[in-house]
Amino acid sequence: MKVYKKLMNALAAVEKIVLVISTLLILVLTVGNVFSRKVIHRSWSFTEELVVAVFVLITLLAAALACREKGGLVSLTLVTDRLPKKLEKPSVILITVLCIVFSAILLKYGMDKVLTQLANGKRTFVLNWPEWIFWSFVPIGAGCMILHFIEYCLDFCLKKDDEKEDK
């Protein structure tokens, strides 16, 4: 379990670095485009493609990190807080399974889209980059979410068992 936790901590660190760099990229591109339009009177047409693609990456990686932090992505606790303590662990396991199923569907369809884009050789309009590059953000984010859902569930279940042993 310690090796798994170290790997997950390393993955989370990489995700945080990618999020910081991606956010800075969006900031620079958006501010630069506004400056260019207002001062030079020329728009950077490529910024829309990049910003939309990077927003997808940011959204999915941030969702993955939210899964890791106290189940933050799925922490609507209106019903689960009212359940008896003995149903707490089964409800977390059920929610985790449902979230993993959703993320697996997202991963599958994201990979299908990436493979289709690779086969077709379709390219973006402005930058003329292969579209599979941008679509690859979907399966990457879904894979990270699956890993972090599993991590949260394991942490929750093992923490509860450790607390019971301490009492």
Rank of each mutant, 00 (worst) to 15 (best):
I140Q: 00
L147A: 13
P139N: 07
I40Q: 05
H41D: 12
K122W: 13
G121T: 12
F137W: 03
D81L: 08
V97R: 04
K5C: 11
N9W: 07
L65C: 11
R82D: 09
K85G: 01
W135K: 08
V18L: 12
I133L: 03
F134M: 00
E69F: 10
I150W: 09
L115G: 08
K159V: 09
C67S: 09
M111S: 14
G143N: 07
V101C: 14
K6V: 10
V28I: 12
E88P: 00
K89A: 09
L57P: 00
A142I: 02
L60D: 00
Q117T: 13
Q117L: 15
L154H: 09
M111E: 08
K70T: 05
F55D: 02
L60A: 06
L106K: 07
A53G: 04
L98R: 01
D155C: 09
D162V: 13
G72N: 09
V97A: 13
C157S: 09
A66C: 15
E48G: 09
L83W: 04
S36G: 03
C144W: 06
R42D: 12
L25V: 07
T124V: 08
T30M: 14
C157R: 03
K108T: 10
G143F: 03
L107D: 01
I40S: 07
V39Q: 09
P130F: 02
V54C: 01
K2H: 14
P130A: 08
P139I: 06
F125Q: 15
V74G: 03
M1F: 11
V51R: 00
L154G: 12
M1Y: 08
V92P: 01
K113T: 12
K85A: 10
L154I: 15
A12P: 07
